[in-house]
C-alpha cells in the first residue's frame, strides 16, 4: 500500500495551549481515514497542518510526498479542502462558485455533475446567503472535489446535514474513495466514524490515543457484549454464576448482563431453566461510544 500521508511527532502550540501533542500516523492510498474526538481535541489543527494552512511547531509531515509548508501551493493543486470554518462571498451564486473552483485546475471534472450529485442543481442560481446550513455544507464539499484531488480533507463534513443528507453524503464519499481518492475526515459523530471510516484515530486533548479499524478498536477496547432484558423477578443473583458472565447491573425491571463470547446463549438457557421468560431479550454489541469511554474516561460530549 502506497503511503499518501506521513505524520511524525506533530506538535502545535498556541500560547499556553498544546493543541496537538506528539501525533504520528500514516494514511495509505484509497482509504477513508478518520479522526474522532471531542471539541478542542486538536483535530482541525492536525488536518490544517497537513494542508499547509497552519505551521507546525515540531514534527515531520509529508502529503503526497510534499512538505505542506515549503510546497504548499503545489500541494493545494492536488488536494481538496473542506474547512470547518470558511466562507465565500454572500452574493456569489452556487454555480459561480463551482465554476470558479473548477477553473483552478485544467483537468477538472465537469462541475455540473458534481453539483447534481450533491443535490445542488435546484439551487444553482441561488446566492450563497440564501442557502440552508446543509446546502452550504454540501456546496463546500462539492468545491473540495472541484479540482479532481488525489486526497480530500473533510472537516466536519456532515455537521448541519439532516439524516437523509448524511446518508447520501456517506455514499458519495464511499464512491469517491472507490474511484481512488484518499479521504481524510474529521468528525465527532460516532456513527459516522464507525460506518464510514476504514481506519480511525481517536484524538483526545491533543494526543492520538488509539488507531485501528473501527471493528478493531471495538474488540480491543470494548470486548464485552451486553445482554439486556426486563423482568419482575426479584432475585437474579444466581446470574453471576452463569459461565461467561462478568457483571450484572439492574435498574428496576431492566437487567444488563455484561460478558464475553457465547454469553447470550448461556444467559438465555439459564433463564429458561429458572422459569424466567422475558420477551425482550437481546444482545447489545459494544459501540465506539464504549471504546471512547474506556480509552478517554469520558464521553465525547464532555
Amino acid at each position: 500500500m502506497k503511503k499518501i500521508i506521513e505524520v511524525e511527532h506533530l506538535r502545535k502550540v498556541y500560547g499556553a495551549t498544546v493543541a496537538v501533542d506528539d501525533v504520528s500516523f500514516e494514511v495509505v492510498e484509497g482509504e477513508i481515514f478518520g479522526l474522532l474526538g471531542p471539541n478542542g481535541a486538536g483535530k482541525t489543527t492536525t488536518v490544517e497542518c497537513l494542508q499547509g494552512l497552519r505551521r507546525p511547531d515540531a514534527g515531520k509531515l509529508r502529503v503526497l510526498g510534499l512538505d505542506p509548508q515549503s510546497d504548499g501551493r503545489e500541494l493545494r493543486r492536488r488536494i481538496g479542502s473542506q474547512l470547518q470554518d470558511s466562507a465565500l462571498p454572500d452574493r456569489m451564486r452556487v454555480w459561480e462558485a463551482l465554476d470558479l473552483f473548477s477553473s483552478f485546475m485544467p483537468n477538472s471534472p465537469d462541475w455540473r455533475i458534481t453539483m447534481d450529485q450533491w443535490g445542488l442543481t435546484e439551487k444553482r442560481r441561488s446566492s450563497l446567503s440564501r442557502l440552508s446550513g446543509g446546502q452550504r455544507q454540501r456546496l463546500f464539499v462539492a468545491l473540495a472535489l472541484a479540482n479532481n484531488p488525489k486526497v480530500i480533507f473533510l472537516d466536519e463534513m456532515t455537521s448541519g446535514l439532516d439524516p437523509a443528507a448524511r446518508h447520501t453524503a456517506w455514499d458519495l464519499i464511499r464512491a469517491i474513495r472507490d474511484r481512488g481518492t484518499t479521504v481524510v475526515m474529521v468528525t465527532h459523530f460516532m456513527d459516522e466514524a464507525e460506518r464510514l471510516c476504514d481506519r480511525l484515530g481517536i484524538v483526545d486533548s491533543g494526543r492520538l490515543t488509539a488507531l485501528d479499524t473501527p471493528q478493531g478498536l471495538i474488540s480491543t477496547y470494548a470486548g464485552q457484549v451486553r445482554v439486556v432484558f426486563s423482568t419482575e423477578h426479584a432475585d437474579l443473583s444466581w446470574l453471576q454464576g452463569v459461565p461467561h458472565v462478568s457483571r450484572v447491573n439492574r435498574h428496576g425491571p431492566r437487567v444488563e448482563v455484561e460478558g464475553t463470547g457465547p454469553v447470550l446463549a448461556r444467559v438465555a438457557a439459564a433463564l429458561v431453566e429458572r422459569g424466567v421468560v422475558p420477551t425482550d431479550l437481546r444482545l447489545e454489541q459494544p459501540s465506539l461510544e464504549d471504546v471512547f469511554l474506556s480509552i478517554t474516561g469520558h464521553t465525547i460530549q464532555d
Binding site: Q51, L53, R76, S86, A87, L88, P89, F140, L143
Partner: peptide, 17 residues
C-alpha cells in the same frame, strides 16, 4: 470583509495564487 468572513481562508486552501 473577506478576511473576517473566512473567504480568504477558503481561497488560501485552493490553488489560486
Amino acid at each position: 470583509k473577506y478576511r473576517e468572513r473566512g473567504v480568504l481562508r477558503r481561497f488560501r486552501a485552493s490553488p489560486i495564487h
